[in-house]
Amino acid sequence: MEKPILQIENLTTSFKIKDKYYMAVDHVSFSVSENEIVAVVGESGCGKSALALSIMRLHNNQRTKIEGEIKYRERNIVTISEGQMNQIRGKEIGIIFQEPLTALNPLMTVGDQIEENLTFHTKLSKEKKRLRTIELLTQVGIPSPTRTYDQFPHELSGGMRQRVMISIAIACNPSLVIADEPTTALDVTIQAQILELLKSIQKETKMGIILITHDLSVVAEVADRVIVMYAGQVVEMGTVKQIFTKPLHPYTRSLLKSIPSQATNKKRLHVIDGMVPSIVNMNRESCRFSPRIPWIPCNAHEESPELHEVAPDHWVRCTCYKHFYFKGLQRGEITNGIT
């Protein structure tokens, strides 16, 4: 067992909406070890991006409350000062954002933006920084690094920009990288290249990766462990093998079933009834997925659902998975449950 780099205990992130706080991330616990890719998967509004930003403490702190523990190498970074946190951001933990065009400063050259990271965390001389930056650009597979060094973000293609984004994240050899939907804005061929790149960097540096994505097939391709989130909570957690060969939670199963693939050719796809609840008005007491599987009887759900370890390292929330079955769909009727 590799030693854990990051241990999250009961992390709760609440956003202030009209003077009241609402939990977007609700008592989430998991850990990430060296050389491991942990994927956090779920649909928009499930709290996965809020989770990523909480780890880096990048939320607007006037409107956000973070509770629980985020232990980076045994040190709780929830309570440390902003100045101490700045020593962790970029140096110990790097982050890759989804949209590389808006995530890069349009007025700064690529080289300057990567070097910035080195300026604040190393004592390298100007020339050394330049060399390191060019080395990084080479490492992420940019064909003419010396030229790109002086280019501006708008002069690069989407895939190249994402490579620049990656080199910013890994500039100081962090031991953990959070990749927040790193391939969503990219074409499939580029997506495959970027995922490959992340894996190859990991091989060299042994960093841990938290991969935030909505795309289950991306998870199947690269992840070691998977965390499925729904409505701010972890609903299922396990190894990639467990999740893809023996998914248990109704949400995981429904998601997997709704993906179009060669097997579904022209057939009807599985549809999940209803909608993801908003954080403002959701019932936090009972099983949060129960409104979307109304044909499962109430007594199948737990009163206040907990995570149960159903197999070593395989956790599922609520007991409803034991009673879950897919409702038969009749062709022609639109059974989407939307009013």
Binding site: L216, L255, S258, L269, I272, I334, N336
Partner: peptide, 28 residues
């Protein structure tokens, strides 16, 4: 999102059947 995508795709197929539609479907 995938689950919403599934709804819309199903539904495009239903409409095709009902209204005898022809689709030029552009996608990546």
């Amino acid at each position: 999102d995938v689950s919403v995508q599934a709804q819309v795709l199903n539904f495009l197929q239903d409409l095709q059947e009902e209204f005898k539609l022809t689709y030029l479907f552009i996608g990546h």
